[in-house]
């Protein structure tokens, strides 16, 4: 264990010997993660906008006969206590009429001519933002339709489910992007480590000849790669944040009318996750080339 420590310390102390190589490795990772970060934030932003538009979507459940207080709260407890329901309210015929007249005051005389109140009783349900299970939603809508006394459920037709599909597609794209970049970084880091090993080939050979075990050779190199991942991704986050501040500033000064909400930066959780992924991918990449090197020199 102590031997590992010596080799690790000496390998880190001597990183200054070929700084260009190390900077190059770190910067390539930075660029990759900057791209990935921008992509993720862009997707996230689009998704958020889409969700907000979905938030404007209402589902109307029309009822045959008026409900008393008890029946109303029964319905709400049974059908609206779902995570995808943001708001659920009972609209009596009277209230519907009032709302209608509030919007179209000149229709008052025509309504009075009808005598009877033509408006049906309904529940107005506003959907929440965090709605992503289409099947669950569909089940719920079907259930609503089957309730005794419900005459019609207006869910905006195909619109809602297509909306959810779009969001799911964006999610899938996010994963594809992550995987593609992951593979890219795997290749890059494994190549960089191979170069590093090549530049230290003689030294590694000598270490092996004086009795360094494979794990003593491997550990410093893997830690080196981990450091690449850590520094590279943190640098990427710094650049992302700077870019984000500039973009936000630009938008709020030039397009404030167009966009009601400002862009959001990644959550701390996402940032940590990004750094951890960068480290993991770098270490795996390094592992590949170290193992290949050690195997190629079966006995050195």
């Amino acid at each position: 264990m102590k031997a590992h420590l010596y080799l690790i310390i000496s390998s880190f102390r001597r990183m200054q010997e070929n700084p260009r190589q190390h900077f190059l490795a770190i910067f390539t990772i930075t660029i990759c993660f900057f791209l990935v970060g921008s992509g993720l934030m862009g997707f996230y932003q689009i998704k958020r906008s889409l969700n907000q538009m979905k938030h404007l979507q209402w589902v109307y459940v029309y009822i045959d006969t008026p409900l008393d207080q008890h029946q109303q709260s029964n319905f709400i407890n049974q059908h609206c206590a779902k995570k995808w329901v943001d708001l659920c309210r009972y609209v009596s015929a009277e209230k519907a009429k009032k709302l209608f007249l509030g919007q179209y005051p000149d229709m008052k005389s025509s309504l009075q001519a009808l005598g009877e109140n033509p408006f049906p009783v309904s529940f107005e349900i506003r959907l929440a933002e965090n709605l992503d299970d289409r099947d669950q939603l569909q089940d719920w809508l079907n259930q609503l339709k089957k309730i005794n006394g419900v005459s019609e459920v207006d869910d905006g037709g195909q619109w809602l489910s297509q909306w959810i599909d779009l969001i799911l597609f964006l999610d899938a794209m996010t994963y594809v992007l992550m995987i593609l970049v992951g593979i890219m970084i795997l290749g890059l880091v494994s190549n960089t480590i191979r170069l590093l090993m090549f530049s230290k080939k003689d030294e590694i050979g000598i270490l092996q000849l004086v009795g360094a075990t494979p794990s003593m050779i491997r550990t410093p190199l893997l830690l080196n790669a981990a450091l690449y991942g850590l520094l590279g991704s943190m640098l990427a986050l710094v650049f992302l944040y700077i870019g984000y501040l500039r973009l936000n500033h630009y938008i709020s000064t030039n397009f404030s009318a167009l966009l009601s909400h400002s862009f959001m930066f990644m959550s701390v959780f996402d940032q940590v996750l990004l750094v951890l992924i960068a480290i993991a991918v770098s270490v795996v990449g390094a592992w590949f080339s170290v193992e290949r090197y050690l195997a190629s020199k079966d006995i050195s």
Partner: peptide, 14 residues
């Protein structure tokens, strides 16, 4: 194994 070879080499000065 590779590791045992490493241990052997520690007992040999070259």
């Amino acid at each position: 194994t590779r590791t045992n070879i490493a241990f052997l080499r520690r007992t040999i000065g070259v």
